[in-house]
Design a protein around this nucleic acid. Structure first.
Lengths: 254, 254
DNA sequence: CGTGAATTTGACTGACATCAACTCAGGTGG
DNA sequence: CCACCTGAGTTGATGTCAGTCAAATTCACG
């Protein structure tokens, strides 16, 4: 088992919360089970506060902005997007989350959800009642530390998105997005070179501060340059090193 | 004393961490002193872990990206900017912080600072050794809760910046920036209509994903429209409601 | 299959960046 | 006291990247 801070540093959105493989009876992969320091008794106690599993169908909201906050959610299965709504009712996608990641931490500050979360495919989460978790944290310093790390990682993830939105060109943004997805799938034991985009071009564009047309053109451009194979939402990365170079800004990309 | 979540909801960067007026012997205004629930004994214990005060001169770094993480910093006095550095060594300003705000929470996840913090004027902070704080949190559930709220608020602050960078036009971004500053000064008991910009046009532009020239033109535009009086870094807000309308996107602004 | 939604493609536009010249404030030293 | 210098800020001319608009094409799903 690797400790969180020894994991490869993934500089982009959502990559920063790893899956810890320790199994819980209710939830075989949620990331609150910090391996080191949790004896069987601890593990049992953690298991007990994990609420029911909840299925969320594709297109269904796990929670909506403004709703009262009671639970954090550990994604067991599936993909989500989180988004904010501006004054004109337009969406801004703030992240894409996948199995092993935690949702809802933004709601702690005000006891209301500050963003909405929507399932991009049929998914399953574990509800973690926050008040129970907080009581547990008091007795389990290791868990407390881990929880703080996870909150902090969400902060750094968002800082990376700020860098992306504030500072990068369209091509670079999109490359960063793909590299990020690849590394997250790799950490999870999936192929980092062949995967399916669970989100629409529109969601991607919204997330990256670009239009749907730009995303389409970028996909095509990368295809022509031999960086990707693209078939609808099916992606095959043919040249990850160059994609990383584009992300870093080392390679300007024609 | 108001509870944090009863404070006026300030939707933009840095406004979300309020000053709690409870006094500490070392640090008369840091925001860890949650009034309710802290008896004198608790307050004393909190005081004891607050490390030395540290002065930071204008232009000096409080911490740099990559440095080992040991302390959080509560700003007593002055202004800071935090920024990330991309692969090409270019800055991306991720926030401006002022008295009563907390710096360094992004470093918890990796035990290294994920951004750099630089004093925009001669400033003073309280060092809060994080390991001591964590020990204390275990014994003080109220403080624990408050700390989680602050972490969460940093997350929501950053989400607001993502909305700003991903979705708003230059004019709207700049209006949002000004409105945000105004409300933060107001919360602190300063004038919300007349204040000094502590940061350069360059920093503002960088933060908002715009160029220095754009900032200059926007200032001029707002001046011409009777929204502001501008004299170097001295700002007087003449029409806050309209500025807020522009921020919200209600008023398109000519 | 057929229908509507998602995506692609192309032509055009516009917002903001870039480049360059200029102004101004504030500090320094003769 | 003022001439000079330097860096911050302003202003104008021009360029460009990505947005907008529109039409064609493909896909998904009943």
């Amino acid at each position: 088992m690797t400790k969180m801070h020894e994991l490869p540093s993934l500089t982009l959105p959502g990559a920063t919360i790893e899956i810890l493989k320790a199994r819980c009876s209710t939830c075989s992969m949620h990331q609150l089970c910090l391996p080191m320091g949790l004896d069987m008794g601890d593990m049992d106690r953690l298991d007990k506060i994990i609420g029911r599993r909840r299925r969320v169908q594709k297109g269904e909201n796990l929670f909506r902005i403004g709703e009262p906050f009671t639970n954090l959610y550990a994604i067991r299965l599936g993909h989500f997007k989180t988004y904010q709504i501006n004054a004109n009712g337009e969406e801004q996608v703030t992240g894409f989350q996948m199995g092993g990641e935690l949702l809802g931490m933004d709601a702690i500050s005000t006891d209301k959800h500050y963003c909405s979360a929507l399932a991009l495919e049929d998914s399953e989460v574990c509800e973690i009642p926050f008040s129970s978790l907080e009581r547990l944290l008091v007795d389990m310093p290791t868990l407390l530390r881990h929880f703080h790390r996870m909150m902090s990682q969400e902060i750094t993830r968002e800082q990376s998105v700020m860098l992306l939105l504030g500072n990068m060109q369209a091509t670079q943004r999109f490359a960063a997005f793909l590299v990020n997805l690849a590394s997250r799938y790799e950490v999870r034991g999936y192929s980092s070179t062949a995967f399916q985009l669970r989100m629409s071009r529109e969601d991607i564009g919204n997330y990256l501060g670009l239009t749907i047309e730009s995303i389409s053109r970028l996909l095509n451009k990368f295809k022509k340059q031999g960086l990707l194979k693209v078939s609808n939402r099916e992606i095959e990365v043919l040249d990850l090193p160059r994609l990383k170079a584009i992300t870093a800004g080392t390679e300007t990309c024609a």
